[in-house]
């Protein structure tokens, strides 16, 4: 009998983060803390990042991940957590149908 699918996501960022740590990689976890307006990912969504900039998960629909990864590499180096705030209100993005026009706050912390 196959085992029960234990988790709520096939590509679960927190499971991946645990695996990375076990491989000896340095890891940061970014978490959506607050949203206003039409933010694409809910509070609690995770992006996990390693020191080389590899990442899994998402904190937006791809709009701000690049910036979060860059900040996360700093957080891994310094060890100090950061709160990032993004306004996603680009006219072009809106016209091509991205769910933007919202703002999100993302907490980035080192896993240590």
């Amino acid at each position: 009998m196959e085992s029960i699918a234990p988790l709520d996501d096939v590509r679960d960022p927190l499971i991946i983060a645990e695996g990375w740590v076990d491989e000896g990689r340095h890891v940061a976890i970014a978490t959506v803390v607050e949203t206003w307006g039409s933010a694409p990912r809910p509070v609690g969504s995770h992006l996990v990042i390693d020191a080389q900039g590899n990442f899994e998960g998402s904190v937006s629909g791809g709009c701000v991940e690049g910036a979060v990864v860059t900040e996360a590499i700093d957080v891994i180096a310094s060890g100090a957590a950061k709160m990032l705030e993004f306004g996603v209100a680009d006219e072009t993005a809106w016209r091509v149908g991205l769910s933007c026009g919202g703002r999100i706050k993302v907490y980035v912390e080192k896993l240590c």
Binding site: P6, L14, I15, A17, V21, I29, T31, E109, L111, C112
Partner: peptide
């Protein structure tokens, strides 16, 4: 977040128990 807390939470999730990580 410390690694021990992450592992403990993933263990709860694998066992199908509800858990809240408070930061």
């Amino acid at each position: 977040m410390d690694i021990a807390a992450l592992k403990a939470m993933n263990e709860e999730r694998r066992a199908r128990r509800a858990a809240v990580m408070v930061t």
